[in-house]
């Protein structure tokens, strides 16, 4: 089928070339141009947040979506990464340069890009933008991809409480921002729903503008060690790259940990994978891929697109089989959230 389309596309291009000046033919075949995506390569520029490709967490999830689009949709991609402590103008410039280089579909990864997207999108109305994790910049050419991290975190919070024997669990946030507080709010509520008497220890590794808490395993390890010593037996690491330290501490203490963003029982170093009972999965890759796919199909829709439990945009992983015994209970909670019987707050 696809091959037929390719051939058709090639033939139509050849026909256009033979026709010489094809301005009239061009406009007369809008249907063809819509379906021959294989011939017309879509150009996608991606601007990562600090850390970029290789952070084993948030940015990598976006990168995975981009790679998938490259493989399946034949997208021509260009990537650029933010530098820690850069000026606002540097973010604007990054987006503008991607556009200048011909990448007229731009994905901005992370809420820090909101002001830059707002400005650059207004100046380039023909360029389509996807802004991940923020609704601060809206416009006719901006799609805002947000995730219900609170709902996913509720489920792993419930899992933590169900698995805990000490009635004491921990939450480690990378940086004390509103985004990570969403994780905390869901996790705490999930744990307390299962066991109202449970103790939830909460610790944030750094305070903004110090964003090192997302990439410092040593800090994660110290914080987790403290929590395990104070009686916690499950710790949720919502801390990007710092999570590695949490897993190391869990391994040393013989306790349990919960991963974040990706299925970390698959991505973490092999020797600590067995302590990860589950991970809260935030499907940034799906969001990214869907955006590019919608562009190739000419179905771009501006506005906010929420990836929540209902559309399977967040969830929990079962790799390793550590929570198979409580899966039925978690799925019951999941259904209650989808049905609106449980409303998970976004602030702790």
């Amino acid at each position: 089928m696809r091959r037929v389309m390719k051939v058709t596309a090639a033939m139509s291009v050849a026909a256009l070339a033979l026709a010489g000046c094809g301005s009239s033919t061009d406009s007369s075949t809008p249907g063809a141009s819509g379906t021959t995506s294989a011939a017309k390569v879509i150009k996608v520029g991606m601007a990562y947040d600090v850390g970029g490709r290789g952070d084993q967490s948030f940015n990598d999830a976006a990168a995975a979506g981009l790679d998938k689009a490259k493989a399946e949709l034949g997208a021509d991609t260009k990537e650029a990464t933010a530098v820690n402590g850069e000026a606002e103008s540097a973010r604007e410039e990054r987006l503008s340069q991607l556009i200048d280089a011909g990448y007229v579909n731009v994905i901005a990864v992370g809420f820090a890009y909101a002001p830059a997207v707002k400005k650059v999108a207004a100046a380039n109305p023909d360029v389509k933008f996807a802004l991940i994790d923020s609704t601060d910049a809206v416009g006719p050419n901006i799609e805002n991809l947000t995730f219900a991290e609170n709902e996913g975190s509720f489920l792993v919070g419930a899992a933590a409480a169900l698995k805990s024997k000490t009635g004491n669990v921990g939450f480690i946030g990378g940086v004390n921002t509103d985004l990570i507080k969403k994780f905390e709010a869901g996790y705490t509520m999930g744990a307390k729903t299962v066991n109202p008497a449970i103790k939830v220890q909460v610790k944030y590794l750094t305070q903004p503008p110090d964003f090192s808490g997302f990439g410092d395993p040593a800090k994660g390890k110290t914080a987790a060690e403290g929590m395990y010593q104070q009686g916690a037996d499950v710790v949720y690491a919502a801390a990007g790259g710092s999570g590695g330290g949490v897993f190391t501490a869990a391994k040393a203490a013989g306790k349990m940990a919960i991963g974040v963003d990706s299925d970390q029982a698959l991505t973490a170093p092999a020797d600590v994978r067995d302590v990860i009972i589950t991970s809260m999965i935030k499907k940034v890759d799906v969001g990214t891929f869907d955006f590019i796919k919608s562009l190739t199909e000419g179905k771009f829709v501006a506005g906010t697109k929420v990836y929540d439990l209902k559309v399977d945009g967040v969830g929990y992983s079962t790799t390793g089989g550590k929570i198979d015994d409580i899966k039925a209970k978690l799925d019951d909670f999941k259904q209650q959230i989808i049905d609106g019987k449980i409303v998970v707050p976004i602030k702790p």
Binding site: F111, A112, A114, D133, S134, T135, D178, Q207, I346
Partner: peptide, 22 residues
């Protein structure tokens, strides 16, 4: 200063709902 500003910022914050910036 980092800790103090961060502590105070969340007290005087004027964030819009759904925004991830304080």
């Amino acid at each position: 200063a980092t800790g103090l500003v961060s502590f105070l910022l969340f007290r005087v914050a004027d964030s819009t709902a759904g925004s991830n910036v304080t």
